[in-house]
Design a protein around this nucleic acid. Structure first.
Lengths: 150, 150
DNA sequence: TATTGTTATACTCTATAACTATA
DNA sequence: TATAGTTATAGAGTATAACAATA
């Protein structure tokens, strides 16, 4: 029997999904008492990376419907974490960006949230950490729907 | 510059979390019209793997509170996908297991859900697929809170 | 026409709190 | 006392449907 056989595509997909699902739920439980939910964190992270973005673009990027993204943004806005400005040339759109408060909250939560995982990862072997780092890039590419190039 | 530098633990953790979160949301959107939700699938998968399990044990395994697991199980039970039997020796517990209908539903959904990811993964290189397969094992171990052995 | 955003409604998932029954 | 399960309540995330405004 081979040391590390490459499983067939279906099994590999199932394993990956189950593992990621578990990790997400585990982390959600670990960071249950933080000031931001998982989805809110994801939105702030994206705004931090991409700068001012419309509801529709955020919804597409996070794979949710515009109405759902609108609801999440409305909450973040009422909490003063994001703000909207009218789009300069398209009268329909609003561009959302982080406020100073939002930037700080994002930084704080990011630090605590990663704490648990980073600590867990610190007990892995170098090879395993390296695996994870490379896998993260591949997973992100898969999730973006772009499987064609590296 | 090294070919594949090992990022520091915090960055690696952040990348992995963001990637897994995106993948989960993407897959949830792709499989939105299926007969089971993500959480329901996870529960059925676990029952299929582990056999009859109590609410408390399921809750621990999936990192949710017993009340939340109880609510999810009540829905699955009323849909006829799982059934409960009293624990043979502990009068407090119930053991939940898949019904025939539940087993079939799980199989159907599993096939469709994995379809999208398996198809996306089929466009990866062999090395990348191998990375993902190994990473899935490591991630599952991290999520289980057991980082000590393989 | 197509896209952007909004409002209204409903369902699922999850949490906390308070309770009963059993170990 | 501690654990298992239940009931009640609430909030967040998501979806669909119907609508108005703009491109």
């Amino acid at each position: 029997m081979a040391r590390h056989p490459i499983p067939d595509a279906d099994t590999a997909a199932a394993d990956l999904l189950a593992a990621c699902g578990l990790l997400i739920r585990r982390l959600r439980a670990e960071s249950n008492n933080l000031e931001l939910t998982w989805s809110q964190s994801a939105i702030l992270s994206r705004l931090a990376l991409a700068g001012p973005t419309s509801i529709a673009d955020l919804a597409r990027a996070e794979s949710v419907k515009p109405q759902s993204m609108g609801a999440s943004l409305a909450m973040l806005e009422s909490d003063g974490l994001v703000e909207r400005t009218p789009h300069p040339s398209d009268g329909r759109q609003f561009l959302f960006s982080l406020t100073a408060v939002g930037t700080e909250a994002h930084r704080r939560v990011r630090r605590s949230k990663q704490g648990w995982l980073a600590s867990a990862m610190s007990e892995l072997s170098d090879d395993e950490r390296d695996d994870l780092a490379r896998a993260a890039k591949v997973i992100a590419r898969l999730a973006d729907g772009d499987t064609r190039a590296s």
